[in-house]
C-alpha cells in the first residue's frame, strides 16, 4: 500500500485500518476533550466502522470505543500503520 507511513488526517483513514496519532491540532477546548478521552500522540487508533448515515465514525483506542464526527477527526493527524490492522 502506498499509504503506509504517510501522515493523513484521521478522518481519511479507511474502515479496518489503523494508525498512530501524530498530532492533535484543534482549538484548546476541543483539544482538551480529545486528550482526556485518550486521543494522545503516540497512541494507536483503529477505525471500527461508520454510522449508517456515514458520520460519525467509530474508533478504538486502547480498548475504548469512541465515536467522533469527521470534522473533529480531521483535527487529528495519524501515521498510517503498515500492517493495515
Amino acid at each position: 500500500m502506498s499509504n503506509d507511513g504517510k501522515q493523513i488526517p484521521l478522518s481519511r483513514l479507511e474502515v479496518g485500518k489503523s494508525g498512530k496519532i501524530v498530532r492533535v491540532s484543534a482549538p484548546p477546548n476541543v483539544r482538551r476533550r480529545l486528550l482526556e478521552m485518550g486521543l494522545v500522540p503516540g497512541e494507536n487508533i483503529f477505525v471500527q466502522g461508520l454510522a449508517p448515515l456515514g458520520d460519525p465514525v467509530e474508533y478504538v483506542v486502547r480498548g475504548t470505543h469512541l465515536s467522533l464526527r469527521r470534522k473533529d477527526a480531521a483535527n487529528i493527524i495519524v501515521e498510517v500503520n503498515a500492517d493495515g490492522s
Binding site: 476533550r33 480529545l34 470505543h65 469512541l66 467522533l68 473533529d72
Partner: peptide
C-alpha cells in the same frame, strides 16, 4: 457549534 462531540460507546 464550537464544541466537539466525542461519544464513548461502553
Amino acid at each position: 457549534q464550537k464544541s466537539v462531540f466525542v461519544l464513548e460507546l461502553p
